[in-house]
């Protein structure tokens, strides 16, 4: 029976990290591959309505990456970082920076942990640590703004109907 795998996002007040936890109905080698192979990454990473292109992605310990999300209006958002460790299939650690920040140096460190579960399932836990509580809240709220924009889109659709 296929039950929906619930996604948990935890950002405790006053702390500068956040956790993303999700289970998948696939063995962890596959989940790890989908996470660290740029050809696969472009197929799922990025907010709704955005197209992802990879500038470079050297998926090995000590490598680096840069990718760009482009929306339908042609606005693009670039992200880059270095890969601290690729320990297949259980761990990937990398830094992450949004190039569009008004000020440079707001980098977070993301640790993705892949845990093998019975029945060929996998639990993924991502911990993102930010420089400050404000940095973390800013990233979470950027989702809020997008959500509000989606609210606008929904309104447009309603008006069209």
């Amino acid at each position: 029976m296929a039950t929906k795998n619930e996604l948990k996002v935890t950002a405790e007040a006053g702390k500068q990290d956040l956790f993303i936890v999700r289970e998948f109905d696939a063995p962890r080698e596959l989940v790890f591959e989908a996470f660290t192979d740029p050809d696969l990454l472009v197929k799922w990473l990025g907010p709704e309505g955005m197209k992802m292109t990879v500038d470079y992605y050297d998926a090995r310990s000590g490598g680096s990456y840069r990718y760009i999300h482009t929306d339908e209006k042609g606005n693009s958002y670039a992200f880059r970082g270095v890969i601290h460790e690729i320990a297949a299939p259980e761990r990937a650690i990398q830094t992450f920076e949004f190039e569009g920040m008004p000020e440079k140096g707001h980098v977070s460190m993301d640790t993705a942990m892949f845990e093998a579960l019975p029945n060929d399932r996998t639990r993924l836990t991502i911990q993102s640590v930010f420089r400050s509580v404000a940095d973390r809240d800013g990233i979470v709220k950027s989702g809020m703004e997008r959500g509000l924009k989606e609210g606008f889109n929904k309104l447009d659709e309603l008006l069209k109907a």
């Binding site: 996002v9 998948f24 989908a34 799922w44 709704e48 709220k141 809020m144 959500g147």
Partner: peptide, 19 residues
């Protein structure tokens, strides 16, 4: 947190399909 969560949910649903 909800919109941020929704964004990730959207991505992970796509990842489910890919897997």
């Amino acid at each position: 947190i909800e919109p941020f969560r929704k964004m990730w949910e959207h991505q992970f649903n796509k990842l489910d399909d890919l897997l």
